[in-house]
Amino acid sequence: MKETNAVFKSRGISFLYLSPSILILLTFIFYPAWKAIILSLYRSNLFLGTRKFIGAENIQNLFWGPLAPGFRQVMVQTIIFSTLVVGIGISVSLFLSVQANKDIKGARIYRMLLIWPFALSPAIAATIALFMFNPEVGLVNAVLHMNIRWLDSPVLAFLLTVCIAVWKNLGYNIVFYLAALQSIPRSPLEAADIDGASPVKKFWLVTFPLLGPTTFFLLFTNITYSFFDTFGIIDMLTRGGPVGPGPFFDKEGLTTTLMYKVYLDGFGGSSNMGFAAAEGLVLMAFVVLVTFLQFRFLGKRIHYEG
């Protein structure tokens, strides 16, 4: 940190400026996070208001006993779901951004049409999808002249949720890729031209490495998106259902992600907040790992750039 900029000295005033932020973070982030850990040691029902200390039983139940197979299924589903949403989302937006960044007529219009979904919310994306894919009155079935029950078939519902989640986030990804592409220096590309590199080679050997920092940034924001922000899409489209095929996927709804399961277990009909908190701890561990990797990477990058 550059200490040369620190021209003011009053400790009291600096504390005064920092205290609102610190107070709010302590009260509304650190304390609830800590309390979630404590909650995982209790058997607790939201509606009955009952609470009983049971030690590590909730955490044990994640891995052994009758609740474990459902949790295992949701873990596997979450990983598949997130991999698809992040993988497809990033590669499609990278491809489209590269096309829209080319020197062609109307490029500005294309760019504008591609980035506006930045302002699209998960709930809005899901509402439109709910209508378009409605089995009775939806446009998709009318055009296909078929009667597909999109949200009742587990695999179709899962794929549809992935597609809507990808669609919702395209604008966000494209904004950052287009910004990065526009700030790429021309000289390496010109040098590649002189060497007679093909466009495909030019992309993989010059453009793609130069986009590295943006890709990493998007990788991490997209992982968080697929964990948390897709909640609205799932809640509106499928409410976590329908139950998947056996013998492995028949414990819970196929579109239930870990975040959605935490919500269902904690606030759903058979409220078991302690168990939900234990699942939340696993989610927390995931996010801490992802953020840790991000900081490590970003730390290195800033280091290299001096």
Binding site: A6, I22, I29, F30, F228
Partner: peptide
Amino acid sequence: FYRFKGKNLVFVFIIVTLMLPTEMLILG
């Protein structure tokens, strides 16, 4: 712009909250 002890610590304390999105804290 202020000089005080433990500045980096305060900064880390604030930045660490990036790891704890509100969605994850709903139970607590």
